[in-house]
Simulated assay, not measured.
Amino acid sequence: MTPALLRHPRFISLEGGEGAGKTTAINAIRDWLQSQGHDVVLTREPGGTPLAERIRELVLGGAPALEIEEPLAPETELLLVFAARAQHVREVVRPALARGAFVVSDRFTDSSYAYQGAGRGLDLQWIADLERRAVGLQPGLTLLLDVDVRVGRARASGRDLWPDRIENERDDFFERVREAFRRRAQDDPGRFRMIDAGQPPAGVAADVAAQVAAFVARGETA
């Protein structure tokens, strides 16, 4: 029997392409939730635990010291991401939710559908099966920070000294990723809220805080 996929009401994820402003958004969510007296855990993917962060280095590379001569196959990339995610969920996400905290994650499984699915062309059903068997958990609210690919890439270009493996992809890759995110948001309006990430950071922060406030006000987070 295929394991069930639990949608947890205190689990919030941030999704979007490169340069979408997820750091600004995640800080705005933390600040609003804490202002309401909630315990908040911020985390990220790939990563979130010491072991998962090591896997992140393998997946993303970037700095010269982390470069590996052998190319990373798309299938290997996907399985590494899910290995990191399984560890992250077991060691960080589930324990925090169990004690009553909100968990806010910079990326979660939707990124695998977008980057490894649409971007790399891997089978979406395989990703869905991994999601159920290795993760078993889905955010109750996902905020999609949507921005034009060229705008986002221009923002991200000066952010890091060494672009990582994903950041070095071509524009057509990121167009497929953006379209996949938008399609997932359209297919699951009960979970997703789309944010215009092309506006100034203050506007993004205000919009995400308002969406979280509305979500909490609906009383679905108990």
Score class of each variant (00 low, 15 high):
A28W: 08
D106C: 03
P50A: 04
A52R: 10
P50K: 09
V40D: 02
D31M: 10
G62D: 07
V81Y: 15
G48S: 02
L42W: 12
T76L: 14
P71L: 04
R54P: 05
L80E: 00
N27M: 11
E57P: 07
P50S: 09
G100L: 04
A73V: 09
L42F: 10
A83R: 08
H88W: 11
G62F: 02
V81M: 15
R99H: 00
P95C: 07
R54I: 06
P74W: 13
N27K: 14
S35F: 00
R30K: 15
G17V: 06
A73P: 04
A96K: 02
V40P: 01
I29F: 09
D39H: 12
L51W: 12
P95G: 01
P46Q: 03
A96Y: 06
S35A: 15
L79A: 05
G47W: 13
G17W: 09
T43K: 03
G61Q: 14
L78C: 08
P71V: 09
G62Y: 13
R94Q: 14
E53H: 04
A86E: 08
V59I: 15
H88K: 10
R56L: 03
L78Y: 12
N27W: 13
A101K: 05
R99G: 01
E77V: 01
E77C: 03
P95H: 08
I26K: 13
G48D: 11
E18M: 07
G17F: 12
R85K: 13
A20V: 11
I12N: 00
T23Q: 06
G100W: 06
L58G: 04
R56M: 05
R56I: 00
L66V: 05
R54W: 11
R85L: 01
R94V: 14
A96I: 04
V40A: 09
R107H: 00
V59L: 13
W32L: 15
L78T: 07
P50M: 09
G47V: 06
T24I: 11
V40S: 07
V103R: 02
I55S: 02
G19F: 06
V93I: 15
T24W: 11
V92A: 04
A25I: 05
F102V: 06
S13F: 07
L80S: 10
G17L: 11
F82P: 00
A63W: 07
V40C: 08
F11P: 00
L60Y: 14
